[in-house]
């Protein structure tokens, strides 16, 4: 979609953030039914409908400029939100190439990439960046390649090295995360990294997901949706900063839940990288307040039902315990009990 950027938006402090009516309509609702349980809900990352969040490999929307500024704010005080182990350098260049080529191809009005052999010229108009560099030569960029390009992308990125029949979390840029830490997880295997997730291990979700990802093919990326909830439109809900946001949850009431409680949806994409044979995991975060969500009647009914009946272990794991009831109460008036059509489309 041809988004009009909203550079004045903030994800902290005064939380000057909202979705335009167009952005509400394209919000990636993760609930295709009126109830929710884990599944290996992986599908090919093929181009979705015109204007949808999956139209292109990487979705650039109206929050782009503001999200890039938010990332810079986090990194200025916490540089370890970006880390890469030394053996991940070839995968860093792979990521830079993937993101630059995708953005330039899909959003020619905003980005362009010109190549003469290894001499590349990158222009990012929304962020006013004009960079000549030599592909493969780190000294020609102001930062490491993954650091450089993910400062110009929405969402978090983790790069996993593949060896010993496992995927190792060994590089990443993580500033828009739902309460997990790259600094803590760096160096972990796939299952160690996902250790805290309840129920899913028993369901062998990670055995199957790992086996699938080890065989992920070049040129055939996949995606899935995941979700949780966040108080205020706060992108950086990190364990490092828990004291700054953890207490927000105590402020939720049935009266203010519509404005404070946000559905937080992650569009997760996975790509095999060509030079390094690593896998990059993109975690793109979308936020919407219950009040904006409820402007779509079907979604209000569905989210009310999903939250009301959510498995207690998931309520705890997603950190909803303190305010789930308040959110359900706030949504209840929107649910007249009428059936919802299957699928996630607004009507």
């Amino acid at each position: 979609m041809s988004a009009v950027f909203k550079p004045e938006e903030t994800f902290r402090g005064d939380f000057n953030y909202s979705n335009s009516p167009q952005a509400v309509r394209r919000f990636p609702l993760p609930f295709a039914e009126d109830n929710y349980m884990y599944s290996v809900n992986i599908e090919p990352h093929l181009p979705g409908p015109l204007g949808s969040v999956t139209e292109f490999a990487f979705d650039v929307d109206e929050h782009y400029v503001a999200e890039c500024r938010e990332r810079a704010i986090v990194l200025a005080t916490e540089p370890l939100r970006y880390q890469a182990m030394p053996h991940m350098m070839s995968s860093q260049w792979d990521c830079l190439e993937l993101i630059m080529e995708s953005l330039a191809h899909d959003y020619p009005a905003h980005f362009s990439l010109a190549k003469q052999g290894n001499r590349w010229h990158w222009i990012n108009r929304p962020l006013e960046i004009d960079q000549h560099f030599t592909f493969g030569d780190t000294a020609t960029l102001p930062r490491e390649p993954l650091d450089y390009i993910t400062r110009q992308a929405q969402g978090d990125f983790v790069v996993m090295d593949q060896r010993e029949g496992d995927l190792w979390c060994e590089a990443g840029m993580v500033t828009t995360q739902a309460d997990w830490s790259l600094d803590f997880d760096l160096g972990m295997t796939f299952k160690e990294w996902h250790g805290p997730v309840p129920l899913a291990h028993e369901l062998q979700v990670f055995d199957r997901a790992l086996k699938f990802l080890l065989n992920l093919r070049l040129g055939q990326p996949v995606r899935r949706l995941n979700w949780t909830m966040t108080i205020n439109p706060r992108l950086d809900t990190s364990p490092e900063n828990y004291p700054q946001w953890g207490t927000d949850r105590a402020a939720v009431t049935a009266q203010n839940a519509g404005d404070l409680v946000h559905l937080r949806v992650e569009l997760q994409g996975l790509w095999r990288l060509p030079r390094s044979n690593a896998v990059v995991f993109g975690i793109r975060c979308y936020l919407i307040s219950l009040r904006q969500l409820a402007t779509v009647p079907k979604w209000a009914r569905r989210v009310h039902r999903v939250l009301k009946d959510l498995h207690p272990a998931l309520v705890d794991y997603k950190g909803l315990t303190r305010y789930r009831d308040a959110a359900v109460q706030w949504l209840a008036p929107f649910d007249d009990g009428s059936p919802t059509t299957s699928g996630t489309a607004p009507e």
Partner: peptide
């Protein structure tokens, strides 16, 4: 078909 690597060098 696109290349597949089942015999990559160990990077560490």
């Amino acid at each position: 078909a696109h290349p597949v690597n089942l015999f990559g060098l160990d990077k560490i």
